[in-house]
Amino acid sequence: MVSQKITVTNEQGMHMRPASVFSQAMTPFASTVKINFNGNTYDAKSVMMLMSACIKCGAEIEVECDGADEQDALKKAIELIESGLGD
């Protein structure tokens, strides 16, 4: 299992579009991808779960990947968040 902390910097936070960009990019990975935020864990492959986390701009989250391609999944996740999630 690998994980990394990162700050969400896109202005809207995990709203509809950023969350759907993120979940769709994570779905092809075999690994489980989770977001730890505010003491809760959310399935990053589910746009509904991501939105329900209410992650706003400036929030620090932890991305956690577990599985065969966990390194690639984590790398992709961090890249996406850093680039502002297509926002």
Partner: peptide, 16 residues
């Protein structure tokens, strides 16, 4: 059109 595309994303969500 994004509004309706959003509906598609939500209904295709594994959790939903």
């Amino acid at each position: 059109a994004e509004i309706l595309e959003g509906h598609l994303v939500m209904i295709s969500d594994p959790t939903m």
